[in-house]
Design a binder for these strands. Structure first.
Lengths: 195, 195
DNA sequence: AACCGACTAATTTAGTTTTCCAGTCCAAAA
DNA sequence: TTTTGGACTGGAAAACTAAATTAGTCGGTT
């Protein structure tokens, strides 16, 4: 055994699991199926992961890491705080739509409410800290002087919760997704809340 | 028969149903129980309402009417648009906490997802139009000139969806309800979004 | 016209059996 | 020694059934 081989197998399991979770979701994908897709026996999987949930979390982590990289690159192209925040919202939202597993976390599509909620909160904590850093950077370099620095954490929370609450409501109500409206909402949220 | 007698029976049914729905919810309250509480036979109820759902909707309507009256009185005490909007949010939210049936609609606690979502959307449409009127009045009397009048409907929607999305998220996360934080959120939402 | 009791059709619940699947164990292979 | 696979297990979920509830109807009574 060597470490890189070990890593390769792990990656293969995650890769195959991702495809299956993507299509069928956490509940309707079995460990036997993941093992079969890898050409291995189920018990082999348990040498690399302690549980099915852990496999799923690994898949989610990979997807989120990918998504966050994309979002980060786009955000960094922006110069102003409002440009950054607006870009963040639009790109993150766009990304969730193209990643079924992440979509399920963000929109609480699950069979295990408790676990799903925990994943959502964990993800949100990370996003909040990222948005907060964007805000603090802007604050430190002299933008948005009209806001108290100690209000920034609450502002970050409000921005995210408000934005996702709004998107969710609009999706529920309209039953269709409107890219332009989304941009308009992100615009209002950022410019009004933050300029 | 006379009309006022008819109305009295209707009211009695709604009143008894309200108490039962309050305690047990829509699903776990039976028409037999409502009838028994009224001292009438079940079939009598069907002279006044065509279905159990209709009784429930009547109860909701009564509760919402009461709540809206309270909110309206409080809002009218306020002079400024931000004062009005902040008061609206806080009072409406406070009201939902004291009315179990309204609470269930607002927070989507239900056994019938589709019906519950419809009730929620219907309620929100009404609230949106009320908030919009507050905004338009303020606009017409010269407040908030920095906003396009045609943006007001979207602003009303954002305010409500954002506020409720945020409150929901905070309740989920904190698992407890903080009156002061709620006020701070309403404050930021209104002052930042609207001042 | 307002009401009731008895009825029905349909849904819900409760109980049982069967199937499935996450996770373990042990032996064999590498 | 480390990795793997096949067989196994316990517990949970699915499928099915029988029994009980309950929304809504109807014919008759006051």
């Amino acid at each position: 055994m060597n470490v890189s081989k070990d890593e390769a197998v792990r990656s293969e399991i995650i890769y195959q699991a991702q495809k299956l979770f993507q299509q069928f979701g956490l509940k309707k994908t079995t460990m036997d199926e993941i093992a079969a897709a890898c050409g291995k026996a189920k018990s082999t999987l348990y040498h690399y992961f302690t549980s099915k949930e852990e496999v799923f979390d690994a898949v989610i982590e990979i997807e989120l890491t990918k998504l966050r990289k994309i979002v980060k690159d786009k955000v960094e192209e922006q110069k102003t705080i409002t440009g950054k925040l607006k870009t963040y919202m639009i790109e993150f939202q766009k990304g969730t739509l193209s990643m079924a597993n992440v979509y399920r976390i963000v929109n609480n599509v699950s069979y295990d409410k408790k676990a799903s909620k925990e994943r959502f909160v964990r993800m949100m904590e990370f996003e909040k800290s990222y948005v907060l850093r964007i805000m603090e950077d802007a604050y430190d370099s002299g933008e948005c002087r009209s806001i108290d620095k100690e209000d920034l954490p609450l502002m970050a929370e409000l921005l995210l919760a408000g934005f996702y609450g709004t998107v969710k409501y609009l999706i529920e109500k309209d039953d269709k997704y409107d890219q332009q409206k989304l941009e308009r909402i992100a615009e209002i949220f950022t410019s009004k809340l933050f300029e």
